[in-house]
C-alpha cells in the first residue's frame, strides 16, 4: 500500500516519549501526516508495526543500554535518512548530563547496587550520533509543533529541511523582551537552539537551555560573563550542563585544563 509515499518509522529509545507524544498531539494535522507518509512503525500510535526498509527514521531518546545500541544500528541500516528528534537523541538528554565515566560507574552502583542485569547491560547515556551517522537534528524538550511540521513537510516533499541555527535570543527579541542577562539573571538564551519562541523569557524566566546547545554557541564568553556577574563557578557549570548532555564535554575539559 501507499507505495510512492515515503516510508517513515518513528522510534523511541530512552526518554520520556514526549517527542512521539508531541507528534500525536498535532491533532489538526494528524490526518495530513498519515496521508503524506506511509508510517511503517510508530509504537505509540499503532500496533501493526513493520520493521523494514525506510526512507526516514525519526529517533527519539538517548542510548542507555547495549540492546539500544543494536536497535539503533539496525534502524540506521534500514533507513536512508536518520533524524535525531528531541533533546535526548540530539545531546543525550538530562540522563546524559555531563559526568566522567568513573563518576557514572559510581552512580550506577549507588542506584542499582550489585544487581546483575540479565536482559541487557546499561551503558552511559549518549546521544544517537555517538553510535551512528545522523542526517538531521530536530532539538527540543520536547520538540516544537511548528518546527516539527515544517521539518516533516519538507522531508516528505523531498526537500532538505531548513536548519534552525540561531539562538533563543532571536525569538526573544522578536517578542520584544528586555534582556534578562542585563538584569543579572543567568539566561542561557545565547547558547541555546531556538524553537521554543523564547517562551520562558516571555514570562520573565531565564532560559534554562532545554533545546540544547546551538551550533556555534560561544560557551567561553557566556561562562565568563556569568562569572563576571558574580555567579559561583560551580553553579555556572551546573546550569550550563543541565541540558547540554555530552555536547559540552570538550568545553569542560578545556576549562579544567585552563585551571591547571
Amino acid at each position: 500500500m501507499n507505495n510512492n509515499k515515503p516510508k517513515i518509522g518513528i522510534y523511541e529509545l530512552t526518554g520520556c516519549a514526549g517527542d512521539a507524544l508531541l507528534i500525536l498531539d498535532c491533532e489538526n494535522e494528524l490526518l495530513d501526516i498519515f496521508q503524506a507518509a506511509d508510517i511503517q512503525s510508530f509504537l505509540m500510535a499503532k500496533s501493526d508495526n513493520i520493521d523494514g526498509d525506510l526512507d526516514v527514521a525519526l529517533v527519539e531518546g538517548s542510548v542507555t543500554t547495549e540492546r539500544e545500541i543494536e536497535e539503533l544500528k539496525d534502524i540506521r541500516n534500514r533507513a536512508k535518512i536518520v533524524v535525531a528528534i528531541g533533546l535526548c537523541a540530539t545531546v543525550g538528554g538530562l540522563q546524559g548530563r555531563f559526568t566522567d565515566s568513573e563518576e557514572w560507574g559510581e552512580n550506577l552502583k549507588k542506584v542499582y547496587g550489585d544487581v546483575e542485569m540479565t536482559h541487557t547491560k546499561a551503558v552511559q547515556s549518549k546521544p544517537i550520533d555517538a553510535y551512528i551517522n545522523v542526517d538531521f537534528y530536530l532539538p527540543g524538550c520536547p520538540i516544537g509543533k511548528e518546527q516539527f511540521l515544517n521539518f516533516f513537510t519538507r522531508l516528505v516533499g523531498g526537500s532538505p529541511p531548513e536548519k534552525y541555527p540561531h539562538p533563543v535570543c532571536v525569538s526573544c527579541k522578536y517578542n520584544e523582551n528586555d534582556c534578562l542577562l542585563n538584569r543579572g539573571l543567568p539566561c542561557l538564551g545565547p547558547l541555546t537552539a531556538d524553537g521554543c519562541g523564547s517562551v520562558c523569557i516571555n514570562h520573565n524566566l531565564p532560559c534554562v537551555g532545554c533545546w540544547g546547545p546551538v551550533e556555534g554557541a560561544n560557551l567561553t564568553s557566556a561562562f565568563y560573563l556569568l562569572k563576571d556577574k558574580g555567579f559561583d563557578v560551580e553553579y555556572i557549570k551546573k546550569v550550563m550542563a543541565n541540558y547540554s548532555g555530552t555536547k559540552i564535554t570538550t568545553f569542560f575539559d578545556q576549562l579544567k585544563k585552563e585551571k591547571q
Partner: peptide
C-alpha cells in the same frame, strides 16, 4: 572572543 552571536544588536 566575547560576542555571543545572539543577533540582538541587529534586532534592536
Amino acid at each position: 572572543t566575547a560576542c555571543l552571536a545572539c543577533g540582538s544588536c541587529s534586532n534592536v
